[in-house]
């Protein structure tokens, strides 16, 4: 597997032109929209605090059976496409009321790029994972981006109900471990990314791109 340079450049350009991700806000159930708490172009905050215990900014009030429910923002960003004409109108469930334009931060862009550029091992089951002892000791010595793996190497151990199943590397070619998405013994949901590998020859190129992103996007 090779990184398609063209493709990556395209992605980068796209991010540059539009460094946002759009999150539509839909109604959870039917009801009347009683009040908009925001205006078009307002900045709203998602849940925050150390444990995300403080709720996000209120967006609008949805009423069903005289139960006025405040719908809150789940992510921070700018309000757009607000459908003010729906005020005091009946809406169906799952109807889009507004969109939140979420400005992507440096880390979010890098993770997006990495997801498209790396070869990723995903979790086959919901279980706890640890690195195989040889890989773990190598990583400790050499650090990320330097440990080489071949086809057939034992990479991970899946620990599930006291049973341990090894996971092997199955791709041809020279790969290095580039990114870890998990901490050992953490419970990982199925199909979540575990490890990202990068082909050895692509390594300098990828690092260059990431440095460029770090330079060009201010860390906000």
């Amino acid at each position: 597997m090779k990184i398609e340079y063209q493709n990556l450049n395209l992605i980068l350009q796209k991010f540059k032109a539009n460094p946002y991700k759009i999150y539509p806000v839909v109604t959870p159930h039917t009801g009347y929209i009683r009040e908009f708490k925001i205006k078009e172009g307002d900045f709203v905050k998602g849940p925050f605090g150390k444990w995300l215990e403080k709720p996000g900014s209120p967006l609008f009030v949805l009423e069903r059976e005289r139960n006025q429910k405040i719908i809150r923002a789940k992510i921070s960003g700018i309000v757009q496409k607000l459908r003010t004409e729906l005020l005091n109108k009946f809406v169906e469930a799952e109807e889009i009321i507004l969109e939140i334009k979420h400005p992507l931060s440096q880390e979010e862009i890098i993770s997006e790029i990495l997801l498209s550029a790396l070869y990723i091992i995903k979790a086959p089951e919901t279980a706890r994972y640890i690195l195989s002892p040889t890989i773990a000791s190598k990583l400790e010595k050499e650090g990320l981006g330097k440990v080489k793996v071949k086809k057939g190497d034992e990479i991970l151990i899946m620990a599930f109900m006291k049973r341990e199943t090894p996971i092997y590397f199955s791709e041809e070619g020279n790969f290095v471990i580039y990114h870890l998405y998990f901490t050992p013994f953490q419970l990982i949901e199925r199909d979540q990314p575990l490890i990202g590998f990068c082909q050895e020859e692509n390594l300098p190129y990828l690092q260059k791109i990431i440095e460029r992103i770090k330079e060009e996007w201010s860390n906000s």
Binding site: H29, R64, E65, R66, N67, K69
Partner: peptide
Amino acid sequence: EDKTVTCPEAEKYGCPDIW
């Protein structure tokens, strides 16, 4: 009162509104 209320844990457990 004739109305429904939302359970504060609704987001976590998907509780329906209660009369």
